[in-house]
Simulated assay, not measured.
Amino acid sequence: MKTIIASPHAPKAVGPYSQAVGAGGALYVSGQLPIDAASGKMAEGIEAQTRRSLTNLGHILREAGYDYSDVVKTTVLLQSIGD
């Protein structure tokens, strides 16, 4: 059985997917853009964008009853490897 997870503090999923899905004791979180859910604005600069994306991830983790210490694997996609 799967559980759909959605935090009101993270940006809504764009397109036909969920912020996260819990299944079989694991949580699968979709990629997080550096958008502030309250303002709808994207952070500027790689450091602010990274911070915002990770903050959004934290909101989703907490909604599902987890925190950063529960994360086993992540993938980071960069526009420029120089970042």
Rank of each mutant, 00 (worst) to 15 (best):
Q79A: 15
L61F: 02
A64D: 01
E63F: 01
A26S: 15
G40D: 08
V29H: 02
G82P: 03
L77S: 14
I46E: 04
S69I: 03
S69R: 10
T50Y: 07
D70A: 10
Q49D: 11
L54Q: 07
H59S: 04
I60K: 02
M1Q: 10
K12S: 11
I46K: 04
L54A: 00
E63K: 03
A10D: 03
P11H: 05
I4A: 05
G65T: 04
G45D: 03
P16S: 11
G31L: 09
D70E: 05
A43T: 06
T55N: 09
G65C: 07
T74R: 13
S30N: 12
T3R: 14
H9A: 14
A37Q: 01
Q49H: 06
A37T: 00
Y28A: 14
L57G: 00
S18Y: 04
M1E: 13
A6L: 05
I5D: 02
D83L: 08
G25S: 13
V21A: 00
M1G: 09
G40Y: 04
P8N: 12
A48C: 08
I4R: 14
L33A: 09
V71K: 10
A48R: 08
L61T: 02
D67L: 05
Q32R: 12
V14I: 15
T75F: 15
H59L: 04
S80L: 09
E44K: 11
L57A: 07
N56Y: 01
S7V: 04
H9Q: 15
L77H: 10
G31R: 10
H9D: 15
M1F: 05
K12Y: 07
I46W: 02
Y68S: 13
V72R: 13
Y66Q: 08
I35L: 13
T50W: 05
A13N: 03
A43M: 08
I5L: 00
S18D: 05
K12R: 12
I35S: 07
V72K: 12
L61R: 00
A38R: 05
G15I: 15
G15A: 09
D36G: 11
Q19G: 02
G58M: 06
V72Q: 12
Y28C: 12
S53D: 09
G40E: 10
I35K: 11
L54N: 01
E44L: 08
A64N: 04
A37N: 05
V21Y: 00
L78S: 13
R52D: 02
G25F: 08
S18W: 01
T75V: 05
G40Q: 05
Q32T: 15
K12V: 06
Q32K: 07
T74S: 14
E44D: 12
L61Y: 00
A23E: 14
R52T: 15
P11N: 04
